[in-house]
């Protein structure tokens, strides 16, 4: 999933300074699962903003809405009846959702209430960790199902570097050395020999380096 964390309230208040009425829009997908921008977080942020405003002697009218998927035009359309009454939209979706709302409502300011972080998985209750960088040419088949691009601090395709100590990365004892994990996994699979296959220089065109990416499925495209 795409993970996110709420921005500091001070930053959000600064964005909203010129407005007295806003539409606060959550999303029912990833940001709900990572507890950053679902219905519950929308309600919490709404109260927090109104209280902060009251302290400064002004009011803030907030209409709360949580869409099924904010990155999907079909659901963003649901805002159409409420958009005019709001001076601005505050979105609690990931960056994709924020941009979809901005695209649909061209004359309405849209502000992000969360920082979109990464594509990750839940390690345990309340902990999410990065797993994928969306490089566009998956090499998990070569690395025992552990991604060195997302999980090695230097994205080394032929690691580990000389900084790997006790299974941890040189940047922090909190970070696992991805190449230690890859090695352990290859061993468990009886594929140690594969370690010595050199992964050659990557063609980063399939990644963000090749410019903004798009998928067009002719069989589905209208």
């Amino acid at each position: 999933m795409i993970t996110a964390e709420r921005k500091p309230i001070e930053e959000i208040l600064e964005y909203l300074e010129p407005y007295d009425r806003i539409l606060l829009v959550g999303c029912n997908e990833c940001v709900t699962v990572c507890a950053a921008g679902g219905r519950k977080e929308v309600a919490l942020l709404s109260s927090a903003l109104q209280m902060a405003r009251m302290k400064s002697g002004r009011t803030l009218e907030v209409r709360e809405m949580t869409l099924e998927r904010q990155c999907d035009p079909e659901y963003v359309e649901e805002l159409v009846n409420f958009i005019d009454q709001a001076g601005a939209v505050l979105s609690m979706a990931c960056g994709c959702g924020v941009q979809e709302v901005a695209r649909r409502f061209k004359d309405k300011p849209v502000f992000p209430a969360v920082n979109t972080k990464f594509m990750g998985a839940s390690e345990r209750q309340g902990v999410w960790a990065e797993r994928c960088q969306g490089c566009g040419d998956c090499l998990l088949g070569l690395t025992g199902g552990i991604c060195p691009i997302a999980r090695c601090s230097k994205r080394l395709l032929n690691g580990p570097c000389g900084g790997s100590t006790d299974g941890k990365c040189e940047i922090s004892p909190e970070v696992d050395c991805a190449w230690q994990l890859i090695w352990e996994r290859l061993k468990a699979l009886g594929l140690e020999k594969r370690y010595e296959d050199i992964i050659s220089a990557k063609d980063w065109r399939t990644s963000r380096d090749g410019g903004p990416r798009k998928i067009v499925r002719e069989d589905l495209a209208s």
Partner: peptide, 16 residues
């Protein structure tokens, strides 16, 4: 560096 058992293999990779 760790894992030690990998350190010769890593040299072999550089040689390759």
């Amino acid at each position: 560096a760790d894992p030690f058992e990998l350190r010769v293999a890593r040299l072999a990779k550089k040689v390759k």
